[in-house]
């Protein structure tokens, strides 16, 4: 009697282990089932739209206002004029660009030479490339809601910013300059005024 009771207990124990094991396997299967199968038709499109336009903000407009504002207000050597910054701005009164094609690797001196076209282009890439997905979202809505971008959230202090509040609010000429640029109709007057603000 005693033996059979023990064997019964043993077989119970085995059963419990089996159940646990199958539950485990089932669980893994369930998790595996939730992992989506790659969709070969789904892709992220990078490049010009069918009509030849792109979703990137305009570079020519950038050069005639926003670049000077960012250079004046954000780019000092103790702020965004640093190679380690996500938003890295070159400017004549701050950090100068690396140029592998020139006579020296760093041909320009801080505080001396004028801003080169290459520096403006690299600033543009830094601004546009800071948050590529949000930038694309904003641009696909014609530049509506630019406050979605860190580029404006940080200086407005909508989000913590070591550089503090650089723009008073959305009536700030600097804000108007950047927002109107993203909307494709540069407010040149605001951009000019933004350079007078300290």
């Amino acid at each position: 009697m005693k033996i059979s009771r023990e064997s019964a207990r043993a077989s119970e124990a085995i059963d419990v282990r089996r159940v646990a094991a199958s539950a485990c396997v089932l669980g893994f299967l369930a998790i595996a089932a939730c992992v989506s199968v790659p969709d070969k038709d789904r892709q992220t499109y990078v490049g010009p739209l069918a009509n030849g336009q792109t979703l990137a903000p305009d570079f020519t407009l950038y050069k005639s206002g926003p670049d000077a504002y960012l250079g004046k207000r954000c780019s000092t050597l103790d702020c965004h004029g640093q190679l380690g910054r996500g938003l890295r701005i070159f400017s004549p009164q701050g950090l100068r660009a690396f140029d592998a094609s020139g006579a020296g690797y760093f041909p320009l001196t801080s505080g001396k030479d004028l801003e080169s076209d290459d520096e403006k282009r690299q600033n543009f890439l830094s601004v546009v490339g800071l948050e590529p997905e949000v930038m694309t979202q904003v641009m696909s809505n014609g530049g509506a809601d630019p406050q979605k971008l860190l580029l404006l959230k940080k200086p407005l202090l909508y989000e913590g910013h070591k550089g503090g509040q650089v723009m008073v609010d959305i009536s700030d000429p600097g804000y108007k300059c950047l927002a109107s640029w993203l909307q494709g109709a540069l407010d040149q007057d605001a951009c000019d005024k933004s350079l007078l603000v300290r």
């Binding site: 000092t76 701050g94 950090l95 760093f106």
Partner: peptide, 21 residues
């Protein structure tokens, strides 16, 4: 230009004049 947040003039004003000073 202005000073953004650095208390040491010499942090920016280093020798020799260069791409970052």
């Amino acid at each position: 230009s202005h000073i953004g947040r650095e208390g040491s003039c010499n942090q920016c004003h280093k020798d020799p004049p260069s791409f970052d000073s």
